[in-house]
Write a protein that binds this DNA or RNA. Structure first.
Lengths: 243, 243
DNA sequence: CGCTGATTTGACAAGGTTCAAGCGAAGTGG
DNA sequence: CCACTTCGCTTGAACCTTGTCAAATCAGCG
């Protein structure tokens, strides 16, 4: 697949620094579009559909899902406000996107996006930049999936979710998705996810708040557990420093 | 990371169909550049270096490596003739690239590439397209790493290596990299890689040819083992067909 | 208050990792 | 040209993590 799922968080932060007053921001394109609503479990598009539109998430959380030949379900990623989906040069969407919570999207015709970006090259530039960030995320995710223990995976996942929301490191993070979603995202079973969360809670690092929220009690401990590679800006800079 | 490692195989095939006579191909840019040679184990650039150049692989095989904080070594991918490396909008290279065999590269200044592609938008288009393919590969790799047993991983890896080389499905594939490289690429230990290869050979699916080559004896069986998701064009189309 | 589906927990088996040797091929020096 | 060294690969056995199967709990909802 390609570019169908683009996370906007990092880009938005980065863009805020160098270009204070840019003519036309990528997301300003979408602002004029009407908002469309989706209820939980509704699909925005299906894997294999003609890829005719790009969407920007205004509100809510979605999941990008693929079903393998043998029936296994893989969650490619979760989408939250500011993220784009459906961006691609391919003819078809490469996975299904479903709403987890109530969701609000703005839709933009791909054809029209093409012509807009032909006129305003910086749009394509921005998209390209986001794509780069997405590549980075994908590769970090690869590392996360392949090289980490259950505990490291869950810790890393919680940190990732914490980074997106809770602007000022408020320690209670919402987890609108089910345990199965988390399991299919982290490449483990639902039981192991549950056990791991229980274990983390038992050691006082986190505390469950109802079923769809978790309070981070010891942020340092959690970071230490996720350790190796939590895709945190600071750590990345640290690595650069050595060379 | 982003775009630092771009596989060219699929793109080249795809490009051959729609645009027969294109003004200037991406790789034709490089053709004018002198060839640089690297000996095995030599690094082309290091993680953290200023990203000043883009390279095209002319000959040989390389590996893209990252070392995690805790010392674990991760191979992001292998690079072969036709692949690009170092492509990025980021300031620094995000991993180290080392020659595995004797390697020949052509270098292109990133600055110059920028200006060239400003003049000829289709260059950026091509790069973008390659990037999309790369995203696809990365996500498939994610699936490969997270959801598969040792046997499936190795089978998938062999098929991947077979696809790149051995143009006409000649069944002997070269594996210039060491077992450790394979292990660090597939997210398993060297022992498990070895055992799995032994097992596949024992069941007559493959046969080892010296240390750095493997003959595929039963292609169907190997495909069946890799199954679920071998990132084969045919299978992808099959998935599309359903929707 | 009693369903229904999601989550947690337990017992057990399987697959992989780890630690430790044993081999073997490629290269070195005599 | 051959014995020797070395590094990479294979093999073995014990251990550990995670997956599997099954059952108990819990939360939300009618």
């Amino acid at each position: 697949m390609s570019l169908q799922l683009v996370t906007g968080h990092q880009s938005r932060v980065a863009a805020a620094v160098p270009f204070a007053a840019e003519k036309q921001d990528l997301s300003s394109l979408f602002d004029a579009q009407p908002v469309e609503r989706f209820t939980p479990a509704a699909a925005v598009f299906w894997e294999g559909d003609q890829a005719r539109h790009i969407f920007e998430v205004v509100e809510g959380t979605l999941r990008a899902v693929r079903i393998l030949n043998d029936g296994r379900r893989v969650i490619i990623g979760f989408l939250r406000p500011g993220d784009l989906l459906g961006v691609s040069l391919k003819e078809h969407y490469l996975y299904t996107v479903e709403a987890i919570t109530h969701v609000e999207l703005r839709r933009f015709s791909r054809r029209r996006f093409e012509s807009e970006s032909a006129r305003a090259p910086h749009l394509r530039e921005q998209l390209f930049s986001r794509l780069c960030d997405e590549m980075a995320a994908a590769q970090d995710q690869m590392v996360l999936l392949s090289r980490r223990s259950a505990e490291e995976k869950v810790a890393g996942f919680l940190l990732m979710m914490a980074r997106g929301q809770s602007e000022n490191r408020r320690p209670v993070i919402e987890l609108p998705m089910t345990r199965l979603d988390v399991a299919d995202y982290l490449g483990m079973t639902i039981e192991t996810v549950s056990r791991t969360i229980t274990k983390l809670a038992g050691s006082g690092v986190i505390a469950t708040v109802g079923r769809h929220a978790i309070a981070i009690l010891k942020m340092d401990a959690l970071i230490a557990l996720a350790d190796g590679e939590c895709d945190d800006g600071a750590q990345r800079s640290a690595r650069y420093a050595k060379a």
